[in-house]
Design a protein around this nucleic acid. Structure first.
Length: 560
DNA sequence: GCCGTTTTCGGCCCGACTGTTTTCAGTCG
């Protein structure tokens, strides 16, 4: 509705209110329908009378008159223009109302024929930019996995350090916040000679398009479509710029509001009392000036971290070094590429001291799931290996399909042979929310279930997860002591970090699992640790930070 | 449309770049 209001209404504050109302609901834990019943919606900050009325309509009837009006008023083709880089509500209103163009095809044609130039504020460059923008959104979705950005980041940091005019260079933005997907990269550069730095940047790669070229900000677009923004500042400004461009936008807004309340002004160049700069050597200093504990970049999403930093209740985040065991991996017994022995070597190379083999269960025909006879064969091999291994332990696990009715994929007599069980959805993704939730709750209540694997089964930038009432799932998992995996595969990263604050309240346990199908896949753990940190998990709530003996004890306790 | 330790009215974060202008509006992050 906020998008539509941007186009329909000329009051930008109205659409902003809808946007912040929507965000408030997204961040809301607990039962929305209960809030509706109690008539307490307006107690949510950002939800007033008007938006509350709309929510009540949507919750009780699934419809609301205001949305229908907006849909009737704004053609879908006009709304699609919001996705064109360089086009915002103001220009789109002119295109739509004054030029009478109401979809991307009509807009493309008008630009090609140079028909926009006669309108105020539009010229040939604008037409060209719009055409490029439409091409761009049609060719790529515009979002990139963190894993796709990693190489570019490493390359750029290395390249920038090769410039004599560069004092320091840091990656900021969503990448530094460990977001699962992103649409561009932000680099902060300190220098006394910005012109030289800009020349260096523009000489990076002739395949890269130069979008903007200024001594404060220069932007490139890589051949694959990934945008890179460079911000040039003086050395003393670097901590402020790093803080500002790490964001998120919502986190920054909260910090600035806090600063303002204290009579200070915060921006990317400093923190000021009146005209006087308060010097800070680091982000830690900036936070201290504001009366806050240091907030790790991963947490900066305005999900409560500012308040927690103010009253010293931020979590001690788990780190990569805390991880001791490799849980959830596949071998050549099912659809993995490596032998058990090769995976042992890969785990040891990562400095780990145990692993849990979890091939697919028998229903996973597509993945060569294990029949009971295969299970027996695999367990014999694991016993042999364990007998010969020093300082390393292999646990016998399985990734068991959660069948459509919520049962696991083997008879109890087979399930009881495993040291632990990861229960995962791999089929019947289209069940409605209630049915799917009951299915997962039944899997959680199964005494053989140790962990839930990739709980929503989403594939980032490819498909959404299943419909699931996460409040009920997390509550049940916490109650039963069932671990909710953070699947570290860069296309999954599921459990989503946005459930982190609620998971912390409930005391949900997790395990950072690579779901490795290859030797190289073991290193995916790093992506999962980033998400675990982002979700606010302390090492104590991540079960594969336990040593081998304690992990063994933990998984046997669940069986009672 | 929302909100209130200045306020129930009048604000709402703030700065850079581009393109179109001749001092600025629109867009973006």
């Amino acid at each position: 509705m906020a998008d539509l209001l941007d186009l329909e209404s000329d009051n930008p504050f109205r659409s902003r209110s809808f946007r912040s109302g929507a965000r408030a609901l997204e961040g809301l834990e607990g039962d929305l329908s209960k809030l509706v019943e109690a008539g307490e919606l307006t107690s949510v900050k950002g939800v007033g009378e008007s938006i509350a009325g709309i929510i009540v309509d949507l919750v009780t009837t699934g419809e609301t008159a205001r949305l229908e009006e907006l849909h009737a008023a704004v053609p879908a083709g006009v709304r699609a223009m919001l996705d064109v880089p360089g086009l915002g509500p103001k220009k789109i209103r002119v295109i739509w109302k004054d030029m009478g163009l109401d979809d991307l095809d009509a807009l493309t044609e008008a630009c090609s024929e140079g028909r926009l130039g006669s309108f105020k504020g539009f010229g040939p460059r604008t037409e060209e930019k719009i055409l490029q923008g439409i091409d761009y959104i049609r060719s790529v979705s515009g979002m990139f996995l963190r894993a796709e950005c990693e190489q570019v980041v490493a390359e750029l940091l290395e390249y920038m350090k090769g410039c004599a005019a560069v004092r320091r260079v840091e990656i900021a933005g969503s990448y530094r916040r460990a977001k699962e997907v992103m649409k561009d990269l932000d680099l902060v550069v300190s220098t006394a000679d910005p012109a030289a730095v800009v020349d260096h940047i523009c000489a990076w790669d002739e395949e890269a398009e130069i979008i903007a070229r200024g001594e404060s900000k220069t932007s490139l677009r890589c051949p694959g479509g990934l945008g890179v923004d460079f911000r040039m500042v003086e050395e003393f400004q670097l901590p402020f710029a790093l803080c500002h461009f790490t964001g998120s936008k919502e986190h920054n807004t909260a910090l600035r509001a806090l600063a303002k309340k204290q009579g200070l002004k915060l921006n990317e160049y400093g923190i000021f009392r009146g005209d006087e700069l308060i010097e800070c050597a680091s982000e830690e200093d900036i936070h201290r000036v504001l009366g806050l504990d240091f907030i790790h970049p991963e947490l900066r999403e305005n999900f409560g971290e500012v308040e927690q930093a103010a009253d010293s209740s931020l979590p001690e985040l788990v780190g990569e070094k805390d991880i001791r065991g490799l849980v959830h991996l596949h071998t050549e017994y099912s659809d993995g590429e490596a032998s058990i022995e090769q995976m042992v070597d890969a785990a040891r190379d990562q400095g780990l001291s145990y692993m849990g083999v979890t091939d697919h269960s028998q229903s996973a025909f597509y993945a060569g799931g294990l029949k009971p006879a295969d299970v027996k064969r695999q367990h014999e091999e694991i016993d042999r290996l364990n007998a010969s291994l020093k300082d390393f332990r292999i646990f016998k696990g399985i990734e068991s399909d959660i069948l459509a009715d919520g049962s696991l994929d083997y008879e109890d007599s087979v399930l009881e042979r495993f040291d632990f069980v990861i229960a995962s959805l791999h089929s019947s993704f289209n069940q409605p929310l209630e049915e799917m939730t009951e299915r997962v709750l039944r899997a959680i209540s199964n005494p053989y279930t140790t962990m839930l694997g990739h709980v929503t089964t989403r594939l980032l930038l490819r498909r959404d997860g299943v419909a699931l009432d996460m409040e009920r799932v997390l509550s049940a998992a916490a109650e039963e002591g069932v671990v909710v995996e953070i699947n570290a595969n860069p296309r999954r990263l599921d459990l989503d970090w946005r459930h982190g604050p609620r998971a912390r309240e409930l005391g949900v346990l997790t395990s950072v699992n690579p779901d490795a199908h290859t030797i190289a896949g073991v290193a995916d753990i790093r992506f999962g640790v980033g998400i675990a940190r982002k979700a606010g998990f302390e090492a104590e709530r991540v079960v594969n930070t336990l040593d081998a003996a304690s992990f063994g004890k933990f998984i046997s306790k669940r069986r009672g």
